[in-house]
Amino acid sequence: MSELLKVKNLHKEFGKNVVLKDINLSVEKGEVVVIIGPSGCGKSTFLRCLNGLEEIQGGVITVDGLPVESGKKEITKLRQKIGMVFQSYELFPHLSVIDNLILAPTKVQKRKKEEVIREATELLDRVGLLDKKDYFPRQLSGGQKQRVAIVRALLMHPEILLFDEVTAALDPEMVHEVLETMLKLAKSGSTMLIVTHEMSFAEAVADRILFFDNGEIVEEAEDVKGFFKEPKTERAKKFLRTFEYDSALYI
């Protein structure tokens, strides 16, 4: 297996506020890494650093051996290798579904329009949204928008996909359809980094779990089932317990 993403001694701060300290991570091709942790622990910022949306104050990030440096010209090349899906979907409201999908492949990668449309149609069909091809974003439900956003990222043929709490803004009944799509992707061998609060999904999809707290990786576990049954660190235990209480409350 080959190493796709490498993070070495990553340090990130907003002014005096240190958000990420000394993060080290290596992700191999085809691996699915799930990042969990309490709100404000730095996990979303971490994802944003990976494709250069945030400047970093120390350390090195490389994708496919190339350094990620925000502000440099080469960053647009790198970002084509890194797909990102946001919590708030961020489809372009002035473009129809199909135009949202083909914009970047035709303008950035200069691919032929017909070819991109063919591929987009195929992918839309796979996520069950072919009939929404000519709809505008505002005519779609949250879950549908998020699936379109995933397809939009996929069409760039990225080597790695970043998911930033993509179900957090969705109504509960729509969470499932989005997670289903992601699960299929994982099974097809995509390399993925997922930030999520859906613990059972994390357990089902992950090859490896990273538990973030206070800007650090507190626990890293390859034995995913084992982690959810009995985490090694006290902080992870405490974090997982809050979810138990949550579900206990609703029963």
């Binding site: 944003r48 084509q80 970047a104």
Partner: peptide, 27 residues
């Protein structure tokens, strides 16, 4: 975040402005 989402698709600042931000702003 609209800009960020366009940038994360590999668009340049200029492409983002022309294809994503400006059409929305004009209307």
């Amino acid at each position: 975040i609209q800009t960020e989402s366009a940038l994360s698709l590999g668009m340049t600042k200029e492409q983002t402005f022309i294809y994503v931000i400006l059409p929305q702003a004009v209307s």
